[in-house]
Nucleic acid binder design. Structure first.
Lengths: 147, 147
DNA sequence: TTGATTATATCAAGGCATTGGCATATCTTG
DNA sequence: CAAGATATGCCAATGCCTTGATATAATCAA
C-alpha cells in the first residue's frame, strides 16, 4: 500500500461526497428535499420495500447510518407526510416505515431532476467506467465496513 | 446513461463517505481530531503549503467546502493551537493559515494511525485498483464540480 | 413467570455542512 | 481620490452525522 495513492483516494472521496450533497440537494431543492432524504425515499421506493415497508433496523443496515440520525431524518419526512411508521403485525417491537401516497407522488416527481443530475454529473464517464467505479466503491465500502 | 447504474454509484459513494468519516475519525480520536480536521491539516502539511501557508481562499478551493464551514473548522484547530492565521505581507486582506510547531508534531504522530486506516480499509483492493479508483473519482469530482 | 434480548424512541453534546446576509479591511481600477 | 472588487470574519437558520445514556415495549428463552 502506497500512502500517497491511498491519500489521494480518500481525499477524492471526501471532495466527491461533499459535491454530491451540495449540488445534488440543489437538484431536488424545489421539493424541499436533500440528498439524504432522497436516499431514504429511494430505498423505500424499491419494489421490495414498497409492499411491506422497511423496519428502522433494515434501513439503518441499508443506509449505514446511526439510529439517532435516521430517526431525525424520518421525523422530518413524517412531518411532511411523505413516510409513515406503522406497527409490524408480526412483531410488536418493529415499526415499518412506508412511503405514503403523497411520498410516492413526490418521489415520482423527483425522478426527473434526479435523472438530470445523474446525466450531468456522469458526463465524463462512459457507461463501462461507471460500472467499474461503482464496483470499486462496493469493495471500498466493504473494506471500510470491516473496520 | 442507465439510471440504475448511476443510482448505485452515488449510493455507494454515500455509504463509503459515511463509513470513511465514522471509522476514520475513530482512528484519530486519540488526538481529539476528526477526518475533516485531518483533511485540513494534511493540506497544510504538504511541502508547498508548509513554506508560506495557504490562504483561506486556497483552502476552500482545495477542500471544496464553504467559507463559513472551513472557518469553524479552523477556529477549532486554532483553539487547540494546531494552526495559526497570519497576515499575508504581500496582501493585507489575505490571512495565511499555517501549521504551528504543535500542529506539525500532532500531524507526525497521527501519520501512524492514518497509515493503519489506509492499509486496513484498502485490504480488498490491489495497488492497481486503488489507482484506478482514485482516477475515476477524479473524473467524477470534475463532473460534479461543473454542475 | 422471570429474566435477558431486541427494536425503537428520546435527550444531550459536539462537529460538519449548506445558504444567505452583513460588516470590515484592503487592493485595484478609473 | 473615489468606486468597485476581493478576502475574510461573523451571525443566523437548518439539516446531517456521531457517540453515549436512558427509557419503554415486546419477544424469546430458561
Amino acid at each position: 500500500m502506497t500512502f500517497d495513492v491511498a491519500n489521494r483516494l480518500f481525499f477524492r472521496l471526501y471532495q466527491s461526497s461533499n459535491l454530491m450533497h451540495k449540488n445534488g440537494t440543489r437538484y431536488v431543492s424545489d421539493f424541499g428535499a436533500t440528498t439524504q432524504q432522497w436516499a431514504v425515499i429511494g430505498a423505500l421506493a424499491r419494489p421490495i420495500a414498497r409492499e411491506k415497508g422497511m423496519s428502522v433496523k433494515d434501513l439503518i443496515e441499508f443506509l449505514l447510518l446511526s439510529r439517532q440520525n435516521l430517526s431525525a431524518v424520518l421525523d422530518r419526512l413524517e412531518a411532511r407526510h411523505w413516510v409513515e411508521r406503522v406497527k409490524d403485525p408480526d412483531d410488536g417491537r418493529t415499526r415499518l416505515i412506508r412511503l405514503t401516497p403523497e411520498g410516492e407522488t413526490q418521489w415520482a416527481a423527483m425522478l426527473g431532476p434526479i435523472q438530470s443530475f445523474y446525466t450531468e454529473a456522469l458526463k465524463g464517464l462512459s457507461e463501462e467506467e461507471q460500472v467499474q467505479l461503482y464496483r470499486l466503491l462496493d469493495r471500498l465500502r466493504d473494506g471500510l465496513e470491516r473496520l
